[in-house]
Lab assay of single mutants.
Amino acid sequence: HMTFVALYDYVASGETDLSFKKGERLQIVNNTEGDWALAHSLTTGRTGYIPSNYVAPSD
């Protein structure tokens, strides 16, 4: 899985969403939902949907 870094803070709007903080590292599990991606946080160990425009690929 590619690793991504959060560009902004995001507060989950539902139970299936994943909250994260700017700078948090995430792995995209499934990116077939258009503007949303299923992601796993390497920081918190949690998995949920995130807005895909809130993250960018990290080196």
Rank of each mutant, 00 (worst) to 15 (best):
V29C: 15
G45W: 02
Y8A: 09
N53V: 09
L7S: 05
A12E: 04
S19I: 06
E15D: 13
G45H: 09
G23L: 03
V55W: 07
E15I: 10
S41P: 00
R25L: 15
L38N: 02
K22Q: 07
Y8K: 07
N31M: 14
T47R: 08
V55M: 07
A12H: 04
G48A: 04
G48S: 03
L7F: 04
L18H: 03
T47P: 00
S52M: 15
S19Q: 05
L7N: 05
Q27N: 07
G23F: 03
E15P: 14
K21L: 09
A6D: 01
F4S: 05
E24M: 01
L18F: 09
T44K: 02
I28K: 03
K22W: 02
V55C: 06
L42Y: 06
G14S: 13
L42P: 07
E33L: 13
T3H: 11
E33K: 12
G14T: 11
H40E: 08
S19V: 06
D59I: 12
D35A: 11
G14R: 14
V11D: 10
D17P: 02
A39E: 00
P57A: 11
W36H: 05
H1L: 12
L42F: 06
D59F: 13
T3P: 06
S58E: 15
V11Q: 11
T16M: 14
T43E: 13
Y8G: 05
T47V: 09
A37E: 04
P57H: 09
A39D: 00
L42V: 07
L42A: 05
D35V: 09
Q27L: 15
I28F: 07
V55E: 04
R25K: 13
S19L: 08
D17N: 09
D35G: 14
R25T: 12
D59A: 12
H40K: 14
V29N: 06
A12K: 04
N53E: 09
W36L: 06
A39Y: 05
D59V: 12
E24V: 00
H40T: 15
Y54I: 08
S13L: 12
S13F: 10
W36Q: 05
G45D: 05
Y10Q: 01
S58W: 14
V55F: 11
A6K: 00
D9T: 06
V55G: 05
Y49D: 02
I28T: 02
N30A: 14
M2Y: 12
D17S: 08
T32V: 14
Y54S: 10
R25Y: 14
S13E: 12
I50S: 00
S52I: 15
G34F: 06
G34P: 07
E24T: 01
T16V: 08
R25F: 14
P57L: 13
S19C: 05
K21G: 05
S41T: 01
Q27S: 08
L42D: 04
K22S: 06
S52N: 10
K22M: 07
V11T: 12
N53M: 10
T32D: 10
S19G: 09
Y54M: 13
G34Y: 06
Q27V: 15
P57C: 10
P57S: 09
A39Q: 00
D35H: 11
G45V: 01
R46I: 06
H40F: 11
V29S: 07
G34I: 05
A56I: 14
L26F: 15
Y10C: 03
Y10I: 02
P57Q: 10
V5Y: 08
T3G: 07
H40V: 15
T32G: 12
S19M: 07
E15N: 10
A37W: 15
L42C: 12
P51R: 04
V11F: 10
G45C: 08
K22A: 11
S41Q: 04
H1F: 13
K21P: 01
G14K: 14
K21D: 05
T43L: 09
G48P: 00
S41M: 02
K22E: 05
L18G: 03
D35Y: 12
L38K: 04
Q27H: 13
M2H: 13
S58G: 09
N30Q: 12
N31D: 11
L7G: 04
A37I: 15
E15Y: 08
A6S: 05
A12R: 04
V5N: 03
A39T: 02
V5L: 08
E24G: 02
H1A: 12
D59H: 12
S58D: 14
G14Y: 09
S13V: 15
F20H: 02
D17E: 15
G45M: 05
S52V: 15
I50H: 00
L7W: 06
L26T: 00
L42W: 05
R46V: 06
I50Y: 01
R46Y: 07
I50A: 02
S41L: 02
G14C: 15
A12F: 03
T44A: 02
V5I: 14
T43R: 08
M2N: 11
N31G: 14
I28M: 08
M2C: 15
G14H: 10
Y8F: 12
P57V: 10
V5G: 01
L38C: 14
A12I: 03
H40G: 02
L38G: 00
G48M: 02
